[in-house]
């Protein structure tokens, strides 16, 4: 990796750096930005939120102004530029294929090589007199600070997790507090992620509910919708209060709770309702398990372990429910 990087990057070391080209950018958050953020959260045309990679000038930066790196995802870039109101600075946007900083760092597109390439391409060493670049802390999974230093001469300074903490970070001379370094997953952080889960699984659950409704199974249509809402909305909303650590269990509990709320309105005897608990709690569990990907603290080893048990359990649960209903009908 290191050797390959040297091979790719070394030619640029001696070649004259291109004249720095940059575009001005504002720190204002406009209604159009708000609308774009809202659409992105609902998964509408989600690949339309790419920012042009390259160098941007915020305010009136000079050779002494700080440099901040970001991803070419509009929500990431907007968070950075709007947090730097009143701070003239250089913003270096990496080509992360329109993916946010943390996910891109996980994939490696917000990474050592792309950062080194961008620094060279922007002609940063001619543009600024210092040799320091501030990265969002969540870019760290993709970046090796010591390698960036070796390849480009620039020292990576990891900033806070959240761009909103940048003004305080800068006031403290480029130091982040322990609080700034920790990710959160509080209610507002979780609930903004619900729409995209809802829309994604809605593609399957809404047509299924419509078919059940048309087939005269109105109660089952309602339960299908309830399983979708439980897995995609109740799970994010109630995550800390749902029982267990495993998301499949938390989500099954959310599904059971949703069915319990609907139960008084359903035309089922206890046997019929019991069979449906197995089916729809498993459906909610399946939907909610995917929220691991949106969470800020689940590990791959944990998700693998959970899925090895949860996927067969969910399938068996649905089959058991269907078998119970069929048995009642035919026996």
């Amino acid at each position: 990796m290191q050797q390959r990087a040297q091979k790719i990057l070394m030619p640029f070391r001696t070649a004259a750096a291109p004249a720095a080209a940059f575009e001005p950018v504002s720190s204002e958050y406009l209604p159009a930005d708000r609308l774009a953020a809202w659409k992105a959260r609902w998964g509408i045309n989600r690949m339309a939120y790419k920012v042009k990679p390259g160098l941007y000038a915020l305010g009136e930066p000079t050779a002494a102004s700080p440099v901040f790196a970001s991803a070419n995802y509009k929500l990431s870039f907007d968070a950075l530029r709007t947090s730097l109101k009143g701070f003239s600075s250089w913003l270096l946007v990496l080509d992360t294929k329109g993916i946010n900083v943390w996910c891109a760092a996980g994939k490696g597109t917000f990474g050592t090589l792309e950062l080194a390439r961008s620094i060279r391409e922007a002609g940063l060493e001619k543009l600024v007199s210092h040799r320091s670049i501030t990265l969002p802390q969540l870019g760290a999974p993709g970046v090796s600070a010591h390698r960036v230093k070796a390849y480009t001469g620039f020292s990576v300074n990891y900033g806070p997790v959240r761009a909103e903490d940048l003004p305080e970070f800068l006031r403290q001379g480029g130091k982040a507090t322990a609080e700034m370094r920790r990710v959160r997953f509080n209610f507002p952080d979780r609930i903004v992620l619900a729409p995209v889960q809802f829309v994604y699984f809605g593609k399957y659950f809404v047509p299924a509910a419509a078919l059940l409704y048309l087939a005269g199974l109105k109660a089952d249509a309602a339960l299908t919708a309830a399983a979708l809402l439980a897995g995609s909305v109740l799970v994010p909303a109630l995550l800390p209060w749902l029982p267990g650590r495993a998301f499949a269990i938390k989500s099954a509990a959310a599904g059971l709770a949703a069915i319990a709320v609907l139960a008084p309105f359903l035309p089922f005897d206890p046997y019929q309702l019991g069979a449906r608990l197995f089916i729809y709690a498993a459906a909610a569990s399946f939907v909610g398990l995917d929220f691991t990907g949106a969470s800020t603290y689940t590990s791959l080893s944990g998700v693998r372990k959970e899925m090895r048990l949860a996927m067969p359990a969910q399938a068996l649960s649905v089959l058991a429910g269907l078998a119970a209903l069929a048995a009642r009908r035919f026996l």
């Binding site: 996910c103 998301f247 995917d290 899925m307």
Partner: peptide
């Protein structure tokens, strides 16, 4: 290193 994401798995 990896992503803790059921969809990814």
């Amino acid at each position: 290193k990896g992503v803790g994401c059921a969809q990814a798995v």
